[in-house]
Every structure is written in structure tokens, then in C-alpha cells.
Design a binder for these strands. Structure first.
Length: 475
RNA sequence: GGCCCCUUCGUCUAUCGGCUAGGACACUAGGUUCUCAUCCUAGUAAGAGCGGUUCGAUUCCGCUAGGGGUCACCA
């Protein structure tokens, strides 16, 4: 790549709520591609639908992206050479371009009311026809248009799609895609409220901001012909398109949707997934490293990523694999790092001093950060012990004796550490020739109330002498 | 339904005409072990169907089937 063809990619979320995991995955690809070629990654806010705007959404979106560890070179908060990066602040641009199109007879004013359009649509559906604009205002004389505009008739500007034309564009992932103009609707470009629709705004802004590559979800394939028509009408060279497959629900059925579970990028962080494992997961969904490496750093990804290598089919969002990756990342964390990451997930009633001792005990067991509480709460919260379980593998008499002897032996320990505890317990087991697994499990249950815990002796050490003896003697 | 896109193990993928079809997750079995987890070893499991092209098709082409997307003054 030479300097005159600098790679510039962008992600353009709408402030209609939380940013979707799929969008975050898309953002990663745009980010990586720009970085790979020392280009720029731009963040732009597409707030052209006033009715769907959610207050505070912009700042939450920015915050979430940062929480994933990704940044942008130009954007709404930091500006840049093509500012502003918020579409609602660029309105005059869109109107100007739309009017230019009308002047060129590539677009037209449409005065149809929503009611009229609704009615036509309903009829078309009833007659099993394609619901689309029928061209009512396509042939209005310029005099007629001028009169209606002068009368302040609400009007939109629609694209005048050449129905006989065949529209073709290249997609990095799928090759050439061809669509007949007859199948493309006369899309509204400028709404009655003066705001542009997505279709006008993206094209105008992507051109204005010198975007070189558009990596976006495949749900946009069917509207790309409209965009291509606009680029042509303006005499602009279209950017390179790559339509990335979208996420399907974990069962592989249907587009990943809210109805099947949380889908916001933030929610995965809140569930205790590490941003780096999420990013890694996005990397290997639908794409693979040349050596089939699955655990990758961002740097490695940037080095090898090429959108042309992305597999063209949609992918199931396999949470099981995400969980595996998250475990891998958690295990690789240093203790101090783990402590830092864990902070938001530590229950308020868990003493901070205890947490440090707990970390080595649970680190290799954690799948998500939020597992911490369930794996450790018995250390600092009262437990209940299932009596029948206690005597599952031995008679009540034997259990009673084992507990009694163990309690007194442990009481005698001067320096309460894992070593001393292990020596005492192992000696008792050997002296009395008790069944090892029965005896160890009994102690485990007695002090923790759980059957699955960290190793016995280190657990007892961390639990502390006082609490251990209390629990043993209570039974 | 129209249009567009897609089709290798359950899932994500490797293969770019020579395949005994490889890897990862998951699963199963075994090892380590005081339980769980980690770790190690092994195993089950796939190129949708039918036609072409070719000496040879998972790989190229067509049809069928299936899946996905899209058909707003939403993005």
C-alpha cells in the first residue's frame, strides 16, 4: 500500500442502545485491518433516526469499546480531520447531495404520505406481490414538484433506480455480486424531517471521510446496490466491500437475537468474560490463523488477518468454546492481574485479605470471573452440611470418631500451615487405616459443605484454624 | 414468496484437482490425583443429494434440497 491509498476503515454504530457483540466483532476486523496497513480506524455515530435514539447511548458505546481494549484514531470524542463524526451534526451535507441528485434526475421528490404507502404495501402483500414503491411520484413534472414544495407539502427524496440497469460490485469475501435494478427499490434518501436515511448518509460520509474499505455485516449485501448506485451518481469511486458473515444463535438457528439471550457486547464483560478472550473468540469465528493457532494475541491477529480469508458462511456463536478460551486466558493471568480483573466480581462480604489467599486455589477452576463467588463463598459465609451425605460411605459411628480424632489432632497444631495439616491428616488416615477417599471427602464436606473444592490441605489452611475447628466440632 | 448469499465432523475450521480428509471446542475412555479443576494419552465423528467437466473430484460447473440475509421516511 502506498501513501496515496492509505487504508481507512470505520465502524459506525447507532445510538439506539448497547452495542451488539456482533458489532464488536465487526469493529475488531475494521480495527485490525487498519492497523495491519498502518491506516486509520474511524468511529462515527450514525444517529439519523431521531425516533430510536436512546439518551446516553453514545457514551456507553464508547465506554464498552474501550473496555474491550480497542481504540479509534478519529471519532466523535477526539475529532479528526473530517470532523464532525456524528451524523446529526452533518445534516446540511446530506441535503445538499440529495438535491444535487434531484437536479441530475438521479433522484426525485416524493409526496406520498405514509398512509398511502401503507395502503399500497398492504395491497401488494395481499396480492402476493413484492412490497415496493410503485413510482407514483417518479414522473412528476418539475412544475408540479415546485408547486407542492411551495405549498409546504411534506416531501422525501427518493433514489431513482434505473430499472433496466444491472448493478455489479465486488466483495472481498464472495467475489462479484450482481443484482438487477428491477429488484432494487426507490429508496428514500432524505426523510421528511430533513434527516438522511442510512443509505445516503453512509455513502456521503464514507466518501467524505475517505473510507477505503468497508467491512460490515452481510445483512448489508442487499442494500449495497443502492450504495453503488449512489457512488456512481456522484461520480465517486466506491470503497472495497467485504461483507462479513453474521453470528447465529448458539444452536446455529437464526440470527443471534435478544430473544435467545443477552447480545450486548457489555453483557459478556458483565458475565465475567475477559475482553481478550472475547476478542480472540471473534478472531477465530469464521477465520483461521495460517497455522491454525487458536489462542492469539491482537498483534498476531493483525499480522495475519486478511478479510479475503474469512469464510463466507454464517457462524454459530459457540458459547462453550468461548468459555474454554476464557478459562485459558484466566489461567494465564498473573496473580496480581487476576486480582485486578476480579475486583468487580468480588462479593462485598468477602474480606479483601482473604481474596489474595483464595486466588491460587481457584484460578485454574474459574471459567468466568463471576464463578469466583460460587467457588469460594463457603470460606467466609456460613455453610450447611448434608448429614446423609456425610455418612454416605461410612457408618455414623465411624464418622463421629473420625471427626472427633481429627479435631483434637488439628487443635494440637502449633503452626497452622498446609504442611502441618497434611502431615496430621495423613498420619491419622494411615494409623487408623481409614479409607482414604472416604475420609478425605468427609473432611472436605465437613469444612466446606461441598463435594468439589480446591485441594483439602491448602483449603483448610486458608479457612483458618478457628473456623476449621468450629466446623468440625459442630457436627 | 421475490431477490441475494452460503453448504467439510454436533460447533468453528484446514484442504486452494491426487485424501489413509488434518486441527480446535465439545463428547467418550484411560492416566495423574483426596474431590473438582488443570495437565497428559487415546477414541467416536464430516465434504447435503443428483448430474456433468476431468485420467482423477471435497476441491471446477449446473440443477435440486437445506440454511442464512433482505425486502421501512430502522440502522
Amino acid at each position: 500500500m502506498n501513501k496515496s491509498s492509505t487504508v481507512r476503515t470505520r465502524m459506525a454504530p447507532s445510538p439506539t442502545g448497547e452495542i451488539h457483540v456482533g458489532s464488536m466483532a465487526m469493529l475488531l476486523k475494521n480495527y485490525a485491518y487498519a492497523k495491519k496497513y498502518s491506516g486509520k480506524f474511524i468511529l462515527r455515530i450514525e444517529d439519523t433516526d431521531q425516533t430510536r435514539e436512546v439518551p446516553g447511548a453514545v457514551s456507553r458505546i464508547l465506554k464498552t469499546i474501550k473496555a474491550y481494549g480497542l481504540t479509534w484514531d478519529e471519532g466523535p470524542d477526539i475529532g479528526g480531520p473530517y470532523a464532525p463524526y456524528i451524523q446529526s451534526k452533518r445534516l446540511s451535507l446530506y441535503r445538499e447531495r440529495a438535491e444535487q441528485l434531484v437536479a441530475q434526475d438521479k433522484a426525485f421528490y416524493c409526496f406520498c404520505t405514509r398512509e398511502q404507502l401503507e395502503k399500497v404495501r398492504a395491497e401488494q402483500i395481499a396480492n402476493k406481490q413484492q412490497p415496493k414503491y410503485v413510482g407514483t411520484c417518479r414522473q412528476l413534472s418539475s412544475q408540479e414538484v415546485a408547486n407542492r414544495l411551495a405549498d409546504k407539502h411534506p416531501a422525501v427524496i427518493r433514489l431513482k433506480v434505473p430499472k433496466e440497469e444491472v448493478i455489479t460490485f465486488r466483495d472481498l469475501i464472495r467475489g462479484t455480486i450482481t443484482v438487477s435494478g428491477a429488484d432494487v427499490d426507490d429508496q428514500v434518501l432524505l426523510k421528511t424531517d430533513g434527516f438522511p436515511t442510512y443509505h445516503l448518509a453512509v455513502v456521503v460520509d464514507d466518501h467524505a471521510m475517505q473510507i477505503s474499505h468497508i467491512l460490515r455485516g452481510e445483512e448489508w449485501i442487499s442494500s449495497t446496490p443502492k450504495h453503488v448506485l449512489l457512488y456512481n451518481a456522484f461520480g465517486w469511486r466506491p470503497p472495497v466491500f467485504a461483507h462479513i458473515p453474521i453470528f447465529l444463535n448458539p444452536n446455529g438457528k437464526g440470527k443471534m437475537s435478544k430473544r435467545k439471550g443477552e447480545v450486548s457486547a457489555q453483557s459478556f464483560l458483565d458475565q465475567g468474560f475477559l475482553p481478550e478472550s472475547l476478542l480472540n473468540f471473534f478472531m477465530i469465528l469464521g477465520w483461521s490463523h495460517p497455522e491454525q493457532k487458536e489462542v492469539l494475541t491482537l498483534t498476531e491477529y493483525i499480522e495475519h488477518f486478511d478479510p479475503a480469508d474469512i469464510s463466507p458462511n454464517s457462524v454459530a456463536f459457540d458459547i462453550v468454546k468461548l468459555r474454554w478460551l476464557n478459562g485459558v486466558y484466566i489461567r494465564a493471568l498473573s496473580t496480581t492481574e487476576l486480582l485486578e480483573r476480579l475486583k468487580p466480581f468480588i462479593p462485598p462480604d468477602c474480606p479483601l485479605e482473604l481474596v489474595k489467599k483464595l486466588l491460587p486455589l481457584v484460578q485454574e477452576r474459574l471459567v468466568t470471573l463471576s464463578d469466583f463467588e460460587q467457588y469460594t463463598d463457603f470460606f467466609y459465609r456460613p455453610i450447611s452440611v448434608d448429614q446423609t451425605r456425610l455418612c454416605k460411605k461410612a457408618t455414623p459411628e465411624l464418622v463421629k470418631e473420625q471427626l472427633k480424632i481429627t479435631t483434637s489432632s488439628l487443635t494440637a497444631i502449633a503452626t497452622w500451615d498446609e504442611q502441618a495439616i497434611e502431615t496430621v491428616v495423613r498420619n491419622l488416615q494411615e494409623q487408623h487405616n481409614w479409607n482414604k477417599s472416604q475420609y478425605f471427602m468427609l473432611l472436605r464436606l465437613a469444612v466446606s459443605g461441598q463435594t468439589a473444592t480446591p485441594p483439602l490441605f491448602s483449603m483448610i489452611e486458608v479457612l483458618g484454624k478457628k473456623r476449621t475447628l468450629e466446623r468440625l466440632s459442630l457436627l
